[in-house]
């Protein structure tokens, strides 16, 4: 297991390096930074001066090393717009997004597991049809729409929950439902397919022949195998959620990372955009690493090949 952790960490570090290069090139090549800073009306001399003061005249490699070196020490530059340091800016938005991500994935898992297991156990029955219909419906509903419906019901009609802001726990109920509702169908499908497959496996027949209880056969023998790919997917989805949901954060006016990204893109605030892209990519790498490690812990064939 220690060997596996070391190997996966080394792999993750290598991916992170590649990601940082890609992020850097992405923002350098998508436009002239001097124009973004100086504005379209800036004169040629002004632009040249901006290039020198921001070091944009240096070779690309030097610029990258400079940027990456400072990023490693936590210095991700300053916002062109507000002149704030970018790193604290992102960190200040993280608690909102992280809370939302945790609650959303919890909602998704809480919906997907019972429905997925029930559907697989009664494959082809009305339970299965119902579960799959709910999944299809949920996948067909964009989260801004389900968010608006929630606002109409709980916020406007019942006046039970706040419709915007992030003041206390009640502010997170509707956004989490909207996002959880959005992530659950894929989890459900994967779990159902996995359960159907493992329930037909030879070792399930062996378990039945041993006279084990149905509960033990389903939870210990079947689910333990079917859950492996679901864990990987849930980790990746969690990474996606940690990157912030632009749509849901906008609908509920949550001051999270998604909202920050949206505003930064609108204002061509390159240091902020670059930092968020890097942050999201690194979260992804980290979540894949976590998924690999959880799978290693759950699956002896990975842990002890």
């Amino acid at each position: 297991m220690i060997g596996l952790v070391g190997r996966k960490l080394a792999e993750a570090a290598l991916v992170a390096l590649i990601v940082s290069v890609a992020t850097f090139l992405l923002t350098t090549w998508t436009g002239d930074l001097a124009i973004s800073i100086g504005g379209l009306g800036a004169s040629r001399e002004e632009l040249d001066r901006l290039r020198v003061t921001h070091g944009l005249d240096r070779p690309l490699l030097v610029q990258y090393l400079d940027w990456a070196g400072r990023a490693l020490t936590g210095d991700l530059g300053r916002s062109f717009f507000s002149q704030e340091d970018v790193a604290p800016l992102i960190l200040s938005r993280l608690p909102v997004t992280a809370t939302l991500a945790v609650c959303s994935i919890a909602v998704g898992v809480a919906l997907a597991f019972p429905l997925g297991i029930a559907a697989a156990l009664r494959q082809g029955s009305w339970v299965d049809t119902l579960a799959q219909s709910i999944a299809a419906l949920s996948q067909a509903m964009p989260s801004f729409w389900s968010g608006l419906l929630l606002i109409l019901l709980f916020g406007v009609t019942l006046q039970a929950l706040p419709i915007s802001g992030a003041d206390d726990w009640s502010s997170f109920v509707m956004p989490s439902l909207a996002l959880g509702w959005f992530v659950f169908p894929i989890l459900l499908r994967l779990l159902r397919a996995g359960m159907v497959e493992t329930l037909g496996a030879d070792y399930i027949r062996t378990a039945r022949a041993k006279g084990l209880s149905r509960r033990r056969i389903v939870l210990r023998h079947a689910l333990r195998n079917a859950v492996l790919p679901v864990v990987s997917l849930a980790a990746v989805q969690f990474g996606q959620l940690l990157g912030g949901s632009v749509v849901v954060e906008s609908v509920f006016a949550l001051p999270g990372i998604g909202q920050l990204a949206w505003h930064a893109i609108q204002r061509a605030d390159y240091p902020v955009v670059q930092a968020i892209v890097l942050f999201v990519a690194l979260i992804f790498v980290a979540m894949n690493l976590v998924a690999d490690l959880i799978n290693g812990a759950l699956d002896p064939r990975i842990r002890r090949p």
Partner: peptide
């Protein structure tokens, strides 16, 4: 698995891998 027990063909797949 108590009064009567079974042994199956495929030892590769008849045991739970995890």
């Amino acid at each position: 698995g108590n009064a009567a027990a079974m042994v199956f063909q495929e030892p590769m797949t008849a045991l739970n891998p995890v």
